[in-house]
Amino acid sequence: MDYIHTEALNKHYEMGHTIVKALNGVDLSLPEKSLSVVMGPSGSGKSTLLHLLGGLDRPTSGEIYLDGSKLSQLDENDLAVFRRKTVGFVFQSFNLIQSFNALENVSFPMRFMNVPRKQRIEEALFYLEQVGIADRASHKPSELSGGEQQRVAIARALINDPTLILADEPTGNLDTASGYSIMEILAGLNRNGRTVLVVTHDPRMRQFASHIIYLLDGSIVKESVYEQAVQQVS
């Protein structure tokens, strides 16, 4: 089975008296170590798909299999452990804790893993170096540029060494140059063997993708596979 596999995935919200179908019967299969880009207009269900795959929310119906786990079978606690060990999230608005410096933000997830403080600092510095801002470790988010903040967020996503990176509009709040360098970092993570799924409006992301999924009104309307890119990865 593929690394990511969904069957008839539905997510419906009640808004007043109407039911909004954010996802409507999505069947998706993505192999391990792929870099998938989910594109589509606002409200097409891109972010909803990403949240469901990352275990941040539960579907109304349908199944998600991820790395062999059937997410519907996991209880709240197991789902938290799944997010902790398997998934790294990157958000459009970075979601950094303002009163923590870069190093503390990066090492924050390790607090829930009972990792000793010394090891936390070492690993956080390692990942800050990976994203190229080890020199900004002691800076608070307010002292960092948007691009730097997103690098901190990516380092945080990597800290528990997850196999899946889920990025939700990671370049949405960034200027063109910073956005591109973030894309390159994500592509680099994919080259290093991680499965990456990026939700974005940015067409430049397509050049790094092995899979492109187009969503419209909660359904997949087009799926493109670039074998070359996949082969390049493998």
């Binding site: 941040l56 709240e76 606690n77 938290a80 902790r84 979601n95 997830p109 829930f112 893993m113 528990n160």
Partner: peptide, 10 residues
Amino acid sequence: GLMKAVGATN
């Protein structure tokens, strides 16, 4: 939300 996203349990 972030705590939970990075793996904090309830």
